[in-house]
Design a protein around this nucleic acid. Sequence first.
DNA 1: GCATCAGTCTACTAATTCCATATAGAGACT
DNA 2: AGTCTCTATATGGAATTAGTAGACTGATGC
Lengths: 149, 149
Amino acid sequence: MLTNKGKYGLKAMVHLAGLAPGQPALVADIASTNNIPKKFLDAILGELRTAGLVHSKKGRGGGYVLAKPAVDIMVGEIVRALDGPLAPIACASRKFYRRCDDCAFEKNCSVRLMMIEVRDAIALVLENRSLAAMRALTDAQDAELTYDI
Amino acid sequence: MLTNKGKYGLKAMVHLAGLAPGQPALVADIASTNNIPKKFLDAILGELRTAGLVHSKKGRGGGYVLAKPAVDIMVGEIVRALDGPLAPIACASRKFYRRCDDCAFEKNCSVRLMMIEVRDAIALVLENRSLAAMRALTDAQDAELTYDI
DNA sequence: GCATCAGTCTACTAATTCCATATAGAGACT
DNA sequence: AGTCTCTATATGGAATTAGTAGACTGATGC
């Protein structure tokens, strides 16, 4: 499940991806244009910084910048950094694997085998879409909206 | 995310699918063979009954039975009945759609468009696997394990 | 070097959801 | 009648999520 934290974080990253490379954005600006509670976004951007996905600069003229070009950041990285495992259940996760204590032989646990398929399906999407590609989804829609008029 | 409720429910359904058609299983039996807290399973099977996925019979010789043949029950139905939306976020859900109040024009919200792709990927798996197919995953593994010896 | 801008850190609260248990009750069979 | 089994309600604790408050640190410009 994507929490508000994950949602806000993705929106902020898309926002950053829309700026000229290297140009920093203020938390206050990101927050107001995306309807995100400022203080909450503070914390979220902090985590994204810890995860190495953004860089920050303090003081006047400061703000947040993407740590890498938007083409090199996969959506899956962002989601994992903020919301943890992509897999719907821990015992089916690659990066956050944890055994569940109620099945004796997990090798043939049908729930797990089923959920591994789901995990793979999710990962196939999120690990192959870059932030740039994600932003492009919006632009495509914008274009459509424009042509409709 | 799949909660314990969903996990236990799936296990219980797989258990039922392994029985001779029409033969009822006791809650106590399902609980003990699958390491599920009995009282919790009571509640879960109650919800599955409300959702019309299982039938119950009281009294001696009673128990729970699948409402339909296992080939006709899709895993997605079970998950939805217990854990709600398949989509990672409400605004990307088909059956449980809910607008999120922080985006003005959801038509071109990149988070939503991205998550719709994820939702579709998940649904493609869960809406096309029957309970019978899910159980077969286990059997396949069992066979492998046997041959290994 | 002082003012101010802007991110950083710590801590806290409120709300929600999840997990589980307890207890009493109602239907069915013998 | 008595036992077996599901049913309904309600309660409570733990964990997670969402959001707030306030003091602090570092950078810039005058």
